[in-house]
Amino acid sequence: MKNVVIALSMLTLTACSTMQPPRYSVSVDNVQTLKSLTEVKGEFVSLNEPAKFSSNCRLMGPIEPADGLSISQFITKAFNDELKMADKYSKDEVKVTGDITKIEFSSISGVTSGYWDISLNLKSTNGKSLAVNNKYSFKSGFDAITACNATADALSPAVQDLIKATLSHPEFTDLMKHS
């Protein structure tokens, strides 16, 4: 009986945790790609949250980005950080808004793997639009603590990969080109 009480106490204590991914880290490859796109200049203004997204990871609690940012603010800031590092950020040029049309994660895909699946519809003040989706896979873990922490840690590289997919899209330059 004592073991059951201890196990329930541990479950209760861990169920209240919030997993916080590290702050976004700029991708050198994304910056290099942006630097090679001579006509690109602008800023990402905002992305709307999807209608449904559960940030809860198993019974561990939610995954919430650092600094009190929402997922949409985290992704928007990541795009702008990449543009700034590539010297392509400008409040006076093209402004991009959009919708996160899909965002979901799994901390248990194939027992010890996980993924972040993110899709965006982007719209530019120049009238162009672009739809992009990216599924980023990673190693998670078997137990909830390890898997959920790995899922939180994978958010930043998942967004780096989403940005890479966006930059690689054949219509990205048109989206960011001042008309």
Rank of each mutant, 00 (worst) to 15 (best):
60 M>V: 14
54 S>E: 13
45 V>L: 14
118 I>F: 01
81 D>M: 13
5 V>L: 15
149 N>C: 02
22 P>R: 02
28 V>N: 12
81 D>A: 13
103 I>W: 03
151 T>L: 01
171 E>N: 13
50 P>S: 09
82 E>C: 07
122 L>M: 11
72 S>Q: 15
71 I>C: 01
4 V>R: 13
118 I>T: 15
19 M>W: 06
140 S>F: 05
53 F>V: 05
163 I>C: 03
171 E>V: 03
132 V>R: 09
125 T>S: 15
75 I>A: 06
4 V>E: 14
130 L>H: 09
129 S>C: 04
167 L>E: 09
69 L>W: 05
30 N>D: 12
26 V>I: 15
130 L>A: 09
50 P>M: 06
143 D>A: 02
53 F>P: 00
130 L>V: 06
79 F>W: 10
83 L>P: 07
49 E>N: 11
163 I>L: 02
124 S>M: 06
127 G>P: 03
27 S>A: 12
138 F>P: 03
98 G>R: 07
92 D>A: 10
88 K>Q: 09
48 N>S: 15
108 I>R: 14
108 I>W: 12
53 F>Q: 04
161 D>L: 06
46 S>R: 14
141 G>N: 06
61 G>Q: 08
119 S>T: 04
41 K>Y: 02
33 T>E: 12
176 M>A: 13
166 T>Q: 07
124 S>I: 04
92 D>G: 00
25 S>K: 14
70 S>M: 08
18 T>D: 02
14 T>G: 01
156 S>W: 01
57 C>T: 04
9 S>I: 09
59 L>A: 13
5 V>D: 14
60 M>W: 11
26 V>R: 07
168 S>E: 12
6 I>H: 00
118 I>E: 05
43 E>C: 08
125 T>D: 13
158 A>R: 06
125 T>I: 05
64 E>N: 11
114 G>Y: 03
176 M>R: 10
12 T>V: 10
57 C>R: 01
167 L>I: 10
22 P>I: 00
115 Y>M: 08
61 G>F: 05
11 L>G: 14
31 V>P: 01
22 P>V: 01
16 C>N: 11
171 E>T: 08
140 S>K: 05
104 E>A: 10
105 F>T: 02
157 P>D: 08
138 F>V: 04
123 K>N: 11
44 F>T: 03
